[in-house]
Amino acid sequence: DEVTIHLGDKTIRVDGLDKELLEILKELARRGADEEELRKEIERWER
């Protein structure tokens, strides 16, 4: 499953996201997290 996250004018595509992680990323994005913060969160989950 590829998920596309839209952040204002930026788009991040991620393969096979965990549903819980997806919810966390959506919440972070709502709070104004930037792409770098979201990537760090994704990397934390992948470990």
Rank of each mutant, 00 (worst) to 15 (best):
Gly8Cys: 08
Asp9Phe: 04
Asp1Glu: 12
Thr11Lys: 08
Glu46Tyr: 15
Leu17Asn: 04
Arg39Trp: 12
Glu37Ala: 14
Leu21Pro: 00
Gly32Ile: 01
Leu28Asp: 00
Glu35Arg: 03
Asp1Gly: 13
His6Phe: 04
Ile42Arg: 03
Glu27Gln: 13
Arg31Pro: 00
Glu2Lys: 10
Leu28Gln: 01
Ile5Lys: 03
Ile24Val: 10
Ile12Thr: 02
Ile24Asp: 01
Leu7Asp: 03
Asp34Arg: 08
Gly8Phe: 06
Lys10His: 11
Ile24Leu: 10
Gly32Leu: 01
Thr4Gly: 06
Glu2Pro: 12
Arg44Ala: 11
Leu17Phe: 09
Asp9Pro: 06
Ile12Pro: 01
Ile24Phe: 08
Trp45Cys: 01
Gly16Trp: 09
Leu25Ala: 00
Asp18Val: 09
Glu37Trp: 05
Asp15Leu: 02
Gly16Glu: 08
Leu38Asn: 00
Ile24His: 11
Lys19Tyr: 09
Leu38Ala: 02
Lys26Cys: 03
His6Pro: 08
Asp1Phe: 11
Trp45His: 03
Arg13Glu: 08
Ile12Gly: 02
Glu41Gln: 09
Leu21Trp: 02
Glu2Thr: 13
Glu41Phe: 15
Arg31Glu: 03
Ile5Thr: 04
Arg39Thr: 04
Asp18Glu: 09
Glu43Cys: 08
Glu43Asn: 08
Glu36Cys: 02
Asp15Pro: 15
Ile42Asn: 00
Lys26Asp: 02
Leu21Arg: 02
Val14Asp: 03
Leu17Ala: 07
Ile42Ala: 02
Ala29Gly: 03
Asp15Cys: 15
Asp18Met: 07
Gly8Trp: 05
Asp34Leu: 07
Leu17Gln: 04
Arg47Ser: 14
Glu23Phe: 13
Lys19Ala: 12
Glu36Asp: 13
Glu37His: 05
Thr11Ala: 11
Glu20Lys: 14
Glu23Cys: 03
Leu17Ser: 06
Thr4Leu: 12
Leu17Tyr: 10
Leu38Glu: 00
Lys10Gly: 10
Trp45Thr: 01
Asp15Val: 14
Glu46Phe: 15
Glu46Gln: 15
Arg44Thr: 06
Glu37Ser: 08
Ala33Trp: 05
Thr11Gln: 08
Arg13His: 09
Arg30Gln: 05
Ile12Phe: 06
His6Cys: 09
Trp45Asn: 01
Glu41His: 05
Leu22His: 03
Lys26Leu: 15
Asp9Ala: 06
Ala33Ile: 03
Leu38Cys: 03
Glu35Lys: 04
Asp18Ser: 14
Ile42Phe: 04
Thr4Cys: 11
Leu21Ala: 01
Glu37Met: 12
Asp34Val: 05
Glu43Lys: 06
Asp1Val: 12
Arg39Asp: 02
Arg30Leu: 12
Arg13Ser: 12
Arg31Ser: 06
Thr4Trp: 05
Asp15Tyr: 04
Arg44Pro: 00
Gly16Val: 10
Asp15Gly: 09
